[in-house]
Each structure stands twice: as structure tokens, then as C-alpha cells.
């Protein structure tokens, strides 16, 4: 074992320099050329940072499109899901409560129209997206509060729907933050 100790020690030192110092620094250098310069892509409104494009934030006000429930209440200092099992009675009660609460805030919507993703918590607790279906189900509420034409909102949702990758890989989605900023700009 002694014979291998010194080479092992020196090789460890070399690999630390190579893999833990040179490599991350190189990537940090390359990332400076990426959008957001490696700090994450920010979204600005009137010259003020209001969020990160890829990080979901809480929208609970009736005048905004809501995102999905979050187990960490959208505080992106941390992240995580509820880790509730599918058969957990407390969990199913939470889901049922969310459905009731959704119906109270959206009296125009029937229960059969609520997509499951709007009453189940995301994996990261920071899901920045909802599906087009989940956006459409909220249109009536928002139109009533903002005194807007429903057609206008239908067009807006359509406009902000991101197609699958290359048109054929993966689901459609809408970035809730970008959609709501556009909503605020709607006249």
C-alpha cells in the first residue's frame, strides 16, 4: 500500500487542479458569453429586475394568471416538491381543497374543466410554466376583473404558447411570468 500512497496523493492534487479549478473556471469563462452572462437570465420591467426568466414566482392575485402550487412557496432560495405519495389521505385532502378554492375564485369555471397540474405541486416548487389548457381555464376570471375582452386574452395566451422543441419534441408550455407581464401591458 505504501508504494501507491505517494503517487495517489500527487495524482489527487493534479486532479483537484484539473477538475475542480481549471474546469469550472473554463466553464465560467465560456458562460460569460451566454445570455445572462452565467448569472441566470433576468427579466426587467421599466428598468427594474422583477424575476428570472427560468424561475417561477408566486402569482396568487386574481388579476394574474396563476402558476402551479409550490411546496416551497416559490422562494427560490431553496427548492423542492411536496414528496407526498399518491395514496396519502392528507395529500388528497390538500388537492381537494385546492380544487374548492379554485372554484371559489373562478365561479365561471366548472369543476370538470380544472387541469390536474393546477392543483398539484411541482417538483422544484419553482415551475415557471403552465400548459395552455391551464391558462385558458383562467381567462374568464381575468377578463371579468380586468374588464377585458375574452378574445383578447385568448389571443394573448396563443401568442405566449411555446411550441414543442422543433415542433415535435416534448410538451407545449407558457411562461407564467412573461405572460403576466404582457397582461399588465395590455390596454
Amino acid at each position: 500500500m505504501k508504494k501507491y500512497f505517494l503517487p495517489s496523493l500527487k495524482l489527487t492534487l493534479v486532479t483537484i487542479i484539473l477538475c475542480s479549478i481549471c474546469y469550472p473556471l473554463l466553464i465560467a469563462l465560456i458562460a460569460k458569453l451566454a445570455p445572462g452572462r452565467g448569472d441566470g437570465e433576468k427579466v426587467m420591467v421599466n428598468g427594474k429586475v422583477v424575476g428570472y426568466a427560468n424561475v417561477g414566482q408566486r402569482f396568487s392575485d386574481d388579476k394574474y394568471f396563476w402558476g402551479r402550487p409550490s411546496a416551497v412557496d416559490y422562494n427560490s432560495a431553496g427548492s423542492g416538491g411536496s414528496n407526498k405519495g399518491p395514496s396519502n389521505a392528507d395529500y388528497l385532502k390538500t388537492v381537494a381543497d385546492r380544487i374548492d378554492s379554485f372554484l371559489v375564485h373562478n365561479p365561471q369555471v366548472k369543476k370538470e374543466e380544472i387541469p390536474a397540474e393546477l392543483v398539484t405541486a411541482s417538483g422544484s416548487g419553482l415551475d415557471p410554466h403552465i400548459s395552455p389548457k391551464s391558462a385558458r381555464v383562467q381567462i374568464k376570471r381575468i377578463a371579468a376583473i380586468r374588464k377585458l375582452n375574452e378574445d383578447q386574452l385568448v389571443t394573448l395566451v396563443q401568442q405566449y404558447t411555446e411550441k414543442p422543441l422543433l415542433g415535435l419534441l416534448g410538451p407545449e408550455k407558457i411562461n407564467v411570468l412573461k405572460l403576466n407581464i404582457a397582461l399588465d401591458n395590455l390596454k
Binding site: 402551479r68 369543476k111 387541469p115 390536474a116 397540474e117 398539484t120
Partner: peptide, 14 residues
């Protein structure tokens, strides 16, 4: 009896 029963708990829309 909501719109669907998608197993979205703990999953991400994107």
C-alpha cells in the same frame, strides 16, 4: 372528476 388525472405532483410542465 376534474379535467384530467395527470400525475403532475412532483413534476414540471416543461
Amino acid at each position: 372528476h376534474i379535467a384530467d388525472a395527470a400525475a403532475m405532483e412532483g413534476k414540471e410542465v416543461r
